[in-house]
Nucleic acid binder design. Structure first.
Length: 588
RNA sequence: GGGGUCGUAGCUCAGUUUGGUUAGAGCGCCGGCCUGUCACGCCGGAGGUCGCGGGUUCGACCCCCGUCGGCCCCGCCA
């Protein structure tokens, strides 16, 4: 058989091909042996078509067909026939036709695979990852990776059309402080020194602006040595963008055109226009800097009401400058004593000690704390929170941010539980006006919330020395259904301001020069104002394809403990390799 | 670093509550029969380190300790 002469992919065949001679190449999905008549489903990346072997019509090939087993790789030559009205399989796109095989070649036999190569197969994650190439052979999983290709193609095409230049930046680069832990790569030529794999191409893309490329993009792998999650892998892909002479508005518009182009391509419905919300407002209304705005249940502060009651816990909290915040749960979310203690468990990690519930039953407030809060105050809370009959107000007392975060967890929990949103509709949101710095208890210093190269509001420069917590950055995140899918900022292009920021972050001039000297040096020679954004390609792909885990859209992912079960990496290396690098392993 | 949960046939799971004769089911696999199947059907068969190590016990899949691995979460992820 001449394998160069494949005429069709299996999934393409239909009634229009009847009578044609075809050559198909693929995997045996299943064999149905009826005696002197055998049906075989042949699968390739496009789909499935039925092959027919008949003892009567093609005795020679029939006897070879007898020996076919699942996952054999074969090539067939044959003619496409209409199956006949009563034999049509309506579940198969190619179900109206079949191929009567006249010639067949078995390229490769196959052992029985550890799991069946079917969409319906339920397979433990461990096994899937160990035999990832078989998992990827399953049609829907195969399609996901093909769709990921379509996504990256759409991005490349769109950005190229908009005048962006794709530029590759190094993977072997310099370890920098701040941010995630680096993956290190030892250098052989200069023993005792290390490259780091980039957490993102941040500094290089800025240098591309200094170099005059004006509009840069890259679909690029990034590496962060931190713990994994369902939506976090140690290596992941970003759509990285940077432009010269930007405004926040310009970058948002570039981003929106790109995202909408992608969403259109995938028939993914989002509501427009995309609202903008300050960080402060997001925390106030949703308790999160990446709120899911597909449903309401907004948070409110109720100190002004509860301070009139007699509930000691709340009064004391207010006295200590803490907040009392509340959320309204609809009547469908009936809260039993058991559920309430579940909720309390849920919010414990956020430093909230208890949750107070007030339910409206027959128009009256019910709940174990009502007698302390007073019926009047309780009623006012129910009214203020617009709690319907049968619904419940949940209250927590804690420092503002912790109370807000805790309630945001409760909000998300009920939003999902009560199906308060249509899963086929999606909601985008810009969150901006982030604070530039936060105090790190661990390091006893100010650290950047975005990164140290983020521009701050001009009028806040004066606050840098005395009140860094009040400094606002020109940074923005884009949120899709409660998931951060991208973020960026306008950068600092003035070396003096950059030095001031380093000072706020507690770097001495010497340290700053040692770590970022090349950037500061570059900025001396004419630097355009610049800024950009980066999108998480894997996350975006996961959300568009409605997957539960980022692993589903990464061809060869790691487990939650950072292992590749297929290759068994990471693994030990030869002594010789270590010797060459002058590295000694310290035994535990 | 911490919490939760899972690990029994090739796969998915039951059995563990209350330790006790030979550890089961469905699917898959192997052999036979079958001309319109498409989750083909029918008959027959093979298949087990109960994750691993130790302990308790007359006796452990079951109880205890440790360990490895999967998944989810907190911390962490500028």
């Amino acid at each position: 058989m001449n394998i160069e002469k494949r005429t069709h992919y299996c999934g393409e065949l239909n009634k229009n091909n009847v009578g044609e001679k075809v050559i198909l190449l693929g995997w045996v999905r299943r064999q149905r042996d009826l005696g002197s008549l055998i049906f075989v489903d042949l699968r390739d990346r496009s789909g499935i078509v039925q092959l027919k072997f008949s003892q009567e019509k093609n005795p020679e090939e029939y006897f070879v067909g007898k020996k076919l087993r699942s996952e054999f790789v074969i090539g067939v030559e044959g003619e496409v026939f209409f199956r006949g009205e009563k034999d049509i399989n309506p579940h198969l796109p190619t179900g109206e036709v079949e191929v009567l095989v006249s010639k067949m070649e078995v390229f490769s036999e196959a052992e029985t695979p550890p799991f069946s190569i079917e969409d319906e197969a339920i397979i433990n994650e461990e096994l899937k990852l160990q035999y990832r190439y078989l998992d990827l052979r399953r049609p829907f999983q195969n399609r996901r990776i093909q769709l990921r290709h379509k996504l990256t193609q759409t991005v490349r095409e769109h950005l190229s059309k908009e005048g962006f230049i794709e530029i590759e930046t190094p993977f072997l680069t310099k370890s920098t402080p701040e941010g995630a832990r680096d993956f290190l790569v030892p250098s052989r030529l200069r023993k005792g020194t290390f490259y780091a794999l980039p957490q993102s191409p941040q500094l290089f893309k800025q240098l591309c602006m200094v170099a005059g490329f004006d509009k840069y993009f890259q679909i690029v792998r990034c590496f962060r040595d931190e713990d994994l999650r369902a939506d976090r892998q140690p290596e992941f892909t970003q759509i990285d963008i940077e432009i010269s002479f930007p405004t926040e508005k310009a970058i948002m518009e570039i981003s929106e055109r790109l995202l909408l182009k992608v969403f259109k391509e995938f028939s993914f419905e989002v509501s427009l226009p995309i609202p903008k919300m300050s960080y402060k407002e997001a925390i106030e209304r949703y308790g999160s800097d990446k709120p899911d705005t597909r449903f309401g249940m907004e948070l409110k502060s109720v100190e002004h009401i509860v301070k009139e009651g007699n509930f000691g816990v709340f009064l004391k909290a207010i006295e200590n400058g803490e907040s009392v915040r509340a959320i309204a749960i609809p009547k469908e979310g009936l809260i039993s004593r058991k559920e309430l203690s579940n909720l309390e468990e849920m919010v414990k990690p956020f430093g909230v000690k208890g949750v107070v519930a007030i339910q409206r039953i027959d128009g009256k407030p019910k709940g174990s704390q009502v007698k302390y809060l007073g019926e009047d105050a309780s009623n006012r809370i129910l009214d203020f929170m617009r709690v319907e009959e049968g619904g419940t107000a949940l209250l927590v007392a804690s420092p503002y941010l912790s109370a807000s975060t805790a309630l945001s967890q409760i909000r998300l929990y009920f939003g999902k539980l009560l199906k308060l949103y249509d899963p086929s509709k999606h909601s985008l949101l810009w969150v901006h006006k982030f604070p530039a710095f936060e105090w790190s208890m661990e390091e006893s210093r100010w650290v950047s919330i975005h990164h140290p190269f983020t521009m701050i509001k001009e009028e806040d420069i004066a606050l840098l020395e005395k009140e860094p917590e009040k400094v606002e950055s020109i940074a923005y995140d884009i949120v899709l259904d409660g998931n951060e899918i991208g973020g960026g900022s306008i950068r600092i292009h003035n070396p003096d301001l950059q030095k001031k920021i380093f000072k706020t972050l507690g770097f001495t001039e010497e340290e700053a020069n040692q770590k970022f000297g090349f950037l500061l040096e570059a900025f001396k020679y004419g630097t355009p104002p610049h800024g950009g954004i980066a999108f998480g390609l894997d996350r975006l792909c996961m959300l568009i394809l409605c997957c539960d885990s980022i692993r589903d859209v990464i061809p060869f992912p790691k487990t939650t403990s950072g292992l590749c079960l297929m290759t068994s990496s990471p693994s030990e290396v030869d002594q010789d390799q270590l010797k060459e690098l002058k590295i000694k392993i310290e035994k535990e």
